[in-house]
């Protein structure tokens, strides 16, 4: 997470934003670097949640641990970015950003790789893949299941 992924646009190198973890999400990103998708799970009520926080939003228990999840889910909804809001994404438009609902329940924002918007739909089954953006950071992304 120290060095940024880069994208060359015209003459200047533009850095893509890299995650700048809040203290509570450091274990999430450490797991991602090892290509594991791990979410906080409550030791009292056994619920998973996301994004990470220091107590369970279901029962307020402060006792939890990060636990690996299946990495399988389905697309709850998705959009396609056509506008370049950040110059590092200029070469990538149009790209798909989706809200994926994991089998374990929590939903997370992500990219769906290797597809255009007409190749995905709400409820399409997807599975996690990891994008090594640097030696220190891998970002969980998704692809259509079985693709």
């Amino acid at each position: 997470m120290m060095s940024d992924a880069t994208n060359k646009t015209s003459d200047k190198i533009v850095e893509k934003p890299v995650p700048r973890p809040a203290p509570e999400s450091v274990p999430y990103w450490q797991a991602a670097r090892e290509h594991r998708l791990a979410l906080p799970r409550c030791e009292a009520c056994e619920a998973f949640w996301f994004p990470p926080s220091a107590s369970c939003p279901h029962c307020l228990s402060p006792n939890f641990k990060f636990e690996n999840v299946s990495g399988r889910g389905k697309i709850y909804s998705f959009v396609t970015f056509h506008r370049v809001y950040h110059p590092a994404f200029e070469a990538e438009v149009p790209y798909v950003v989706a809200l994926v609902e994991l089998e374990e329940g929590p939903r997370l924002l992500t990219n769906i790789l290797g597809v255009t918007a007409d190749q995905v739909a709400c409820d399409t089954a997807v599975e996690v893949v990891f994008d090594d953006v640097s030696d220190e950071c891998a970002v969980p992304k998704f692809k259509v299941a079985g693709a």
Binding site: R20, S25, P51, Y85, L99, L109, A121, C122
Partner: peptide
């Protein structure tokens, strides 16, 4: 946001509401 958004190229209120629109169109 500093994580869980910008690294995916997700910015701004337009995309948040567009997610709702896609879901409504689907349902």
């Amino acid at each position: 946001p500093r994580e869980f958004g910008p690294e995916y190229g997700y910015f701004g209120a337009t995309a948040a509401h567009a997610l709702g629109a896609t879901r409504h169109m689907h349902l």
